[in-house]
């Protein structure tokens, strides 16, 4: 065991470096006030309403995701459109 620990000591896991990088992103977001995307639930609800004007969709077919990054965040909105309903609409 001692020997194993010795090698780990030489190699070093350097998790502190990762911790620092994660913290820098996190703290920058906290400070900008953009950390809590409180508007996302409302956005999702309104999106569904808008889409429903054109296609019948369920709430669960609209997925809103946010990927936070150091320089910018990506807001991803996926709407699942059932082909059958699209066809129905085209036929009207």
């Amino acid at each position: 065991m001692r020997l194993l620990e010795f090698f780990r000591l030489l190699r070093g896991s350097r998790s502190a470096e990762t911790a620092k990088q994660r913290l820098q992103v996190l703290v920058a977001l906290d400070r900008s006030g953009a950390a809590g995307p409180d508007f996302l639930p409302l956005l999702q609800k309104e999106l569904v309403e808008v889409i429903r004007k054109y296609v019948e969709v369920e709430e669960r077919q609209v997925k809103v995701e946010l990927e936070r990054g150091a320089d910018f965040s990506v807001l991803e909105i996926n709407v699942e459109l059932p082909t059958s309903r699209l066809l129905k609409r085209a036929a009207v």
């Binding site: 000591l9 070093g12 896991s13 998790s15 470096e17 911790a19």
Partner: peptide, 10 residues
């Protein structure tokens, strides 16, 4: 020193 803990400077 092992790099397992944030250092003061960090």
């Amino acid at each position: 020193q092992r790099g397992d803990m944030l250092k003061l400077e960090d």
